[in-house]
Simulated assay, not measured.
Amino acid sequence: MDTIQIVVLALIQGLTEFLPISSSAHLILPAEVLGWPDQGLAFDVAVHFGSLIAVLVYFRRDVWVLLRDGLGGLVNNRYTDEGRLAWLIVLATIPAGLVGLIFKGYIETHLRSAAVIAATTIGFGVLLWWADIRGKRTGTLAQLNWKKALAIGIAQALALIPGTSRSGITMMAGLMLGMKREDSARFSFLMSIPVIALSAMLLSFDLLSLEVVPWGDILLGTVLSCISAYLCIHFFLQFISRIGMAPFAIYRLLLGAALIWMIWG
């Protein structure tokens, strides 16, 4: 990868990791339009770590309280709202972990086509819009129970299908379960931490098999992905309660249409 490709794809990945618009769909477009080669393992490692750093820094106070109260509850058997939320995040992470371990090979071999990504981009875009319109939008994180957390976790497991969007489908599930927009987004971002961390670690083990590791590319991709992801989280939480999911759903429909045009046009 040359420097321009690293810069463009790292910024795209950082922005789309937390917006409900599918990062995998966006990484196809530059490759198709500009004829760029596959970004490779080093880039995947870089952007995963960049996104992880961004969400940890942005939610650093929340993460500290969740860890403190979650582990503290095990010791004294008294759980605060934050301690209970910590274990709900753990519960919600289990489905994606299991599905990833079992079906990772199949998904990478059979479901990474442009046709699949176009279909999921459009299909889940429609569902996101429907959930935003039909959802009650009254539930808060304090009212979240284990059944709803597990349901959101199962939705997150479906995001392993390229084009679905991890943030998109988890926010959609939260809205369907009656959560407020900002609360569903916050839970989606918090539950992304263990998933991204596990994914980054697995990719890092694969990176060790490379004879030559492009550390300069990794550093640049990590920094750019981190900055764009941090800004994305900040502004998304600032405006989501006002703008809703409609703009993102419409964008997904247009993006899916563009992918279809590139495939069969």
Rank of each mutant, 00 (worst) to 15 (best):
M1S: 14
T3P: 00
Q13F: 10
S23R: 02
S24L: 03
I28A: 12
V33R: 14
G35M: 11
P37C: 09
L41V: 12
F43W: 12
D44N: 15
V45D: 05
A46L: 10
F49D: 01
G50K: 03
S51I: 07
L52E: 02
L56S: 10
L56K: 02
Y58S: 08
W64C: 08
V65T: 14
R68H: 14
D69V: 03
T80M: 06
D81H: 12
G83V: 11
R84V: 06
L101D: 04
G105E: 09
T109L: 07
L111C: 13
R112P: 00
V116L: 09
A118L: 08
A119N: 07
I122Y: 03
R134A: 15
K136W: 00
T138P: 00
G139F: 08
Q143S: 15
A151S: 15
I152M: 14
G153Y: 04
M172V: 06
M172N: 03
L177V: 13
R181F: 03
E182T: 14
D183F: 09
A185S: 11
R186F: 08
L190Q: 00
S192M: 11
A197I: 05
S204H: 01
S209V: 03
E211N: 13
V213A: 02
W215D: 04
G216A: 08
D217W: 10
I218C: 08
L219F: 15
G221D: 11
T222N: 03
I227W: 05
S228L: 12
C232A: 15
F236Q: 06
Q238P: 01
S241M: 01
R242E: 12
R242A: 13
G244W: 08
L253Q: 01
A257H: 08
I260S: 09
W261D: 02
M262E: 02
G265P: 10
